[in-house]
């Protein structure tokens, strides 16, 4: 930030205290959506977009999401590229299962415990798991970190374990890309004992 930055930041934080729901990122995002909806980039659209974004955020304040994330560019690139490749593979697989002659395949319902406590990262993992090969998410209990999913074409215990392994790998990629300290969750030697992990029936 420049010399005027301190004053500007001061004013900004004061403004934020007065308007708790209004975050600059949200204003920017809503303005971008507004401009894209109008389909042309000019002053009127940008000003109108900022005004609409402010009105929306003041009238419908969102709960503050406490995101403690750290973006690692390399791990994030791996996450995105791998996800797109998985999406293509999953689509082709399911499409083939749908059109191939012969008996149609069934699946099983299974569940597993996620490593992270963060609701945002859990949601991101669940959404991605729904789109990668073999699995669709059915249920997610954030408190107990229990993810219930449906796996297509699983018949044996070893195949079920393979699906669990894949989901864990997906979560590991998400954590490595965004979590501030992924190894604390992923490394079994450093995994902290969390009370509450035992209460599931």
């Amino acid at each position: 930030m420049s010399a005027g930055g301190v004053g500007a930041r001061d004013r900004l934080s004061r403004a934020r205290r007065r308007l708790p729901g209004v975050s600059p990122a949200a204003v920017l995002w809503l303005t971008a959506v507004w401009v894209l909806l109008w389909g042309s980039l000019d002053v009127l659209n940008v000003v109108g977009g900022v005004l609409v974004a402010l009105v929306v955020l003041v009238l419908f304040p969102l709960p503050r999401v406490d995101l403690r994330l750290r973006l690692r560019p390399l791990a994030f690139t791996i996450l995105v590229v791998r996800f797109l490749a998985d999406l293509v593979r999953a689509s082709v697989e399911v499409a083939w299962l749908a059109v191939r002659p012969g008996p149609v395949s069934r699946g099983v319902v299974m569940d597993l415990e996620l490593a992270s406590d963060d609701a945002f990262l859990q949601t991101l993992t669940a959404e991605m798991v729904s789109l990668v090969p073999g699995s669709v998410v059915i249920d997610l209990e954030p408190g107990t970190r229990l993810l219930t999913l449906h796996a297509l074409g699983v018949r044996t215990r070893a195949q079920a374990e393979r699906v669990r392994h894949k989901v864990r790998a997906q979560e590991a990629r998400v954590l490595r890309a965004l979590h501030p300290d992924p190894e604390a969750l992923l490394d079994p030697r450093r995994r902290r004992h969390t009370p509450g992990a035992e209460v599931t029936g």
Partner: peptide, 14 residues
């Protein structure tokens, strides 16, 4: 609550 787990009927890998 989610339905009670029914007995595991997965085949062992041959």
């Amino acid at each position: 609550p989610a339905p009670d787990p029914v007995p595991d009927r997965l085949e062992e890998e041959s």
